[in-house]
Design a binder for these strands. Structure first.
Lengths: 209, 209
DNA sequence: GGAGCCTAAGTTGCATACAATCGCGAGACC
DNA sequence: GGTCTCGCGATTGTATGCAACTTAGGCTCC
């Protein structure tokens, strides 16, 4: 793997898993030493993470892990509901049979993984793949990239981990409903089901703090 | 101005005004010489433009001005209608009196500038400011940045320049309607008027080719 | 004659050295 | 005692040199 990719992946992972908590400074020389690369690829990785909104950059003063306010997270979920709803609507029109089949398999796998309380991490991974597949099925070349920039925010990813078994069951049921709508080629239903799914998660976030 | 900013601004301008046409290669050494800076800031500017979707980067093979297909432009306008419509809806709820006043002034200025056929460029500038103000008035910290990434595509910017006097009049009238809706705090009206404005522009683009 | 390889030129990727800028603290002055 | 200023340490910003990769051309071999 090339140096930039290595630095980018490691930094991103560190931000998401809390190694670099919100507000922490990302000093170039320190990171370069830690990653065994020079400052150049570190700088490039930092700029890339900045463009994705994961970190803030102050000219001549360094880069810091971005902090999110409650209000910003609410805005984020609103926009996400808008875009993911649109993606689901398009998926209801354009998803291929193969894509529908994989969605069903992912739903089954999630049910299975959810039965084991220790597999939460695995459920989260399958959840990501399910959503990514819906975006991809929209046959729109812009949406996946735009949504990806939204859902990688740490808090969004961690939302899933705090779910109760009951709440998790509801979330998986919502996936089933989205899939049903896409299978039925029912555009408004798909859009609405996805919006419900996202806004429901936002409510959970608000309630849990 | 620092070197990166200089390189970024110059490159971006060159891409938008056609100095670097779609598909053209952006060689680092050549640009560095032309801009009187080293390759380092040029590289950073290129990466930034890449993250904004204006150029494509192939690892080890260079950067090229992005080309847009008809289908991608259609998708772009669809997403834009979605996001700008949402922004208008929020603006109807949150715009301040001062912001509404400036919107009205911008509409007046556009009418004035549109009377002179030579001032098309000025109309385009005022149009940008009007839309940016609506985004800002949404009181949402994510939307302006996301929409900005969409509307800076060369073809989108140039759409305006090809308008007939009659078509231009319609566009300005649509601005007035959006403003009326925002003034009336009528959320669905504002969203709908903005969507109409964007999708109408998309139709114009389709028809003119 | 055609396919494959090999070499060389040109480009990007990365490392390192130097320059510019910022922030903080010590000191002087009011 | 408080405030302003100067200077130093630390960090980012930029330039340049070398390494690695890609590609195109010509050559050899089949």
């Amino acid at each position: 793997m090339n140096a930039v990719e290595h630095a980018y992946a490691t930094l991103r992972k560190g931000i998401l898993d809390g190694t670099y908590p919100p507000g922490a400074q990302l000093a170039e020389v320190e990171l370069a030493g830690h990653l065994s690369v020079s400052r150049t690829p570190v700088r490039e990785a930092i700029r890339r993470l900045h463009s994705e909104g994961l970190i803030e950059v102050f000219p001549n003063r360094g880069a810091y892990v971005r902090t999110w306010t409650r209000a910003q997270l609410d805005e984020l979920f609103s926009v996400r509901a808008l875009l993911e709803g649109h993606a689901a609507a398009l998926a209801a029109q354009h998803a291929t049979d193969a894509q529908r089949t994989v969605m069903a398999v992912l739903c089954d796998d999630m049910d299975e993984a959810a039965a084991e309380p220790t597999d939460i991490q695995r459920v989260a991974g399958l959840n990501d793949r399910f959503h990514a597949l819906v975006h991809e099925s929209s046959a729109n070349s812009l949406l996946p990239g735009m949504i990806r920039g939204l859902i990688q925010v740490p808090v969004v990813l961690r939302t899933f981990l705090g779910y109760s078994p009951e709440r998790l069951r509801i979330s998986l049921q919502q996936h089933r409903e989205i899939l049903s709508a896409i299978r039925a080629h029912d555009v408004p239903w798909a859009e609405s089901a996805m919006r419900t799914h996202i806004l429901s998660a936002r409510h959970e976030l608000d309630a849990s703090s």
